[in-house]
Structure formats: C-alpha cells, structure tokens
Amino acid sequence: MLNINKIHHVAIICSDYEVSKQFYTQIMGFTILAEYYRKERDSYKLDLAVNENYAIELFSFPFPPTRISRPEAAGLRHLAFEVNDIDTTLEWLNKNQISAEPVRIDQFTGKRFTFISDPDGLPIEFYEK
C-alpha cells in the first residue's frame, strides 16, 4: 500500500496568465510563494499558498487547448475550498462581481456549499465548515 500523507498541490493551466493571477491572488486571496518565467517554454509558473500551505501551481502556455469542464465531463470535476461562513464568502464574491450558483445543502452532511468558476471556467466549490 502507498503511504500518501496528503495532497501536495493542484496544477492549473490558464488561458490568460494575468487575469488568472489576479483572480487567484486578489479574489481567492492566495499568497504568492514564487513566480517563474520559463523562456524555453514561453510559460509562467506561479506557486500559490492557501493559509501558508503550498497548494496551487498556476501555469501559462501559449495557446492551450480548451478543456470541457461541464456538464459532468470525465476528469477533474472541481476544486473545493473550506470556508467558515458561506454568507460572508458570498458577500465577498458579490463585492468583486463574481457570480455564484445558488447555495445548496449537502444531503449527507447538511453543510451549505456553492460554486463559482475561475476565469477559464474551472468549477470552484466553497464548502462551509
């Protein structure tokens, strides 16, 4: 059996690096740990932290192909982030002109959650603690 400790990071390829960088740092509030430009690939790599924990690698590549993310396409379904309060999260999103789906209740846990999309349409879930 493998001895996996935790998920180390999630890698995301974006279509517009500056737009996605602004979204993940200014809207999502992630902290930049490091930013690299790889000239040979004409590619940026941005390392982001969630609450001081390395979590996301944001990549740019010239002309990345689009990926189907909805409805229920095979592959990564969504990224989910725990929040203390859905209402406070929705207020922040609304203030920043980010539209969220109506709040739902998890039928198994009774917890509230909602979804938004990142600049490339990747579904992001906010799940109340």
Rank of each mutant, 00 (worst) to 15 (best):
I105N: 08
W92C: 10
F126V: 03
W92Q: 11
Y127N: 02
K111G: 08
R41W: 14
F63I: 11
A74Q: 12
I98G: 00
L46H: 01
L122N: 10
S69H: 15
A80G: 11
E40Y: 05
V103M: 02
T109V: 04
L46N: 01
E52I: 05
K45W: 13
N96A: 01
P102C: 03
E101H: 10
E57Y: 05
E125L: 07
R112G: 01
V103L: 02
R112W: 06
S117K: 14
T109Y: 00
L46R: 02
K111P: 02
N94I: 12
R104D: 00
A55D: 01
R112P: 00
L46D: 00
E91M: 14
P64N: 03
G75R: 06
F113W: 09
F113I: 04
R104T: 09
D42F: 09
I68A: 14
L46I: 00
A49E: 11
H78P: 07
I124Y: 05
L58R: 07
T89K: 04
E57W: 04
T66P: 12
W92P: 09
A74E: 11
S43K: 11
P102L: 02
Y54T: 00
W92F: 10
P119H: 07
R112Q: 09
L93Q: 04
R112K: 11
I98F: 04
I105K: 12
T114A: 08
V50W: 14
I68S: 15
N51H: 13
A74R: 13
T89F: 01
L76R: 11
P65R: 12
G121I: 10
S69T: 15
T88F: 01
S60M: 09
